[in-house]
Amino acid sequence: MGQANNKGYLEQTETIKTMIQTCIQCGTCTASCPNIEFMDITPRHMWRLLMTDHVDQLFSSKSFIMCSSCYYCTLRCPRGLELTNAMSQLKQVASKLRLKQFRRSSLFYEAFLNSVKNHGRVKEMEFMTNYFISMKNPVIPFAYASLGIKLLAKGKIRPEFSFGRKGKLTALFKKVAELEE
């Protein structure tokens, strides 16, 4: 799917913009981030782009995708802003808009939640298998093979699949989707 236009981003990001509107650009978030060296723009810069409606630049960056939810920025923000939460909401928008650079994470989370919807609990082997299938890249599974074999050998993951089964949490997921329309 193609990239959404600027207007599409703006509607989706209005709530996030409200969340960070009292940012004073001090950069404590940037200084606290453990993943900063893997980001192309800093968290402080991201909030600035959001405040000045340069969201297209924000969504062409990979920075928010690198957030590992350590909550250091949220803890230390002198304005008490929920910055980790803002990062998660940016991920939600990226996932909804099917942004290319978020594809791998998005497919990972979708496979995870599908397993939850079907069984109520995550079945790790099913979830990772479906993730690999959705990636449509035959090379990626090899990176996980040695860990997968170790986990299988210890009986920590089991082959379990749920073809054709009625989902345990389908009704909840459906209602959530309705309310978030």
């Binding site: 998660s88 909401q89 991920k91 998005s106 989370y109 995870f112 939640l113 949490l169 909840l172 978030e180």
Partner: peptide, 22 residues
């Protein structure tokens, strides 16, 4: 059932509250 882990909050705000709330 599952709490949603970091997957739910990356996909849906409401789901990330509903799964633990259950």
């Amino acid at each position: 059932t599952c709490c949603g882990a970091t997957a739910a909050e990356s996909q849906s705000h409401l789901l990330s509250y509903v799964l633990p709330a259950r």
